[in-house]
């Protein structure tokens, strides 16, 4: 059965929608910021005197950033697929379950883009700051 002849694909029910997906990417951005901040604060307080202390912090930042960007990218991809359901034409502001479904996907995609940029900005600090001082 093709997707066009699948009534569930063409007319999604609202119960299928996952609202949490909308704010998942900004939440990952917030967690990434907190993780970076707390790691730098604790590590520098305990081992700030040693030369290699900030190298460890930088490695931690890099790992957090890769994980966060992968998760945000995955959520963005889900949003992109969702906003392309049935048609990729914009706008999708009709008062129908399908358009609400597609709008949710589009908003998820945009918020994922914003969160990815913000996450990179947080990580950029570790590129320029080279010590716990």
């Amino acid at each position: 059965m093709s997707r066009i002849s699948d009534p569930e694909y063409m007319q999604p029910t609202e119960e299928q929608d996952r609202f949490w997906i909308l704010f998942a990417s900004p939440t990952i951005w917030a967690i990434h910021l907190l993780a970076c901040y707390i790691t730098a604060a604790i590590w520098c307080a305990k081992f700030g005197e040693t030369e290699s202390a900030f190298t460890t912090v930088r490695i931690a930042f890099a790992v957090y950033t890769v994980v966060a960007l992968a998760a945000i990218g995955w959520l963005g991809w889900i949003g992109y697929q969702q906003q392309r359901r049935v048609t990729d034409k914009t706008p999708h502001d009709d008062d129908t379950p399908l358009d609400r479904h597609r709008f949710l996907g589009f908003a998820t995609l945009l918020l994922s883009g914003l969160s990815a940029i913000a996450t990179i900005y947080v990580a950029l600090v570790a590129v320029f700051i080279g010590s716990c001082d």
């Binding site: 883009g113 940029i117 900005y121 950029l124 600090v125 590129v127 320029f128 700051i129 080279g130 001082d133």
Partner: peptide, 26 residues
């Protein structure tokens, strides 16, 4: 609305962050 602000803000972030090491240097 999307590409230009991102490029400009990224440029400004990098430009201002690049000053930090000399501002914080002992």
């Amino acid at each position: 609305g999307v590409i230009a602000p991102t490029v400009i803000l990224t440029g400004l972030v990098i430009y201002s962050l690049a000053f930090l090491p000399q501002l914080l240097a002992r």
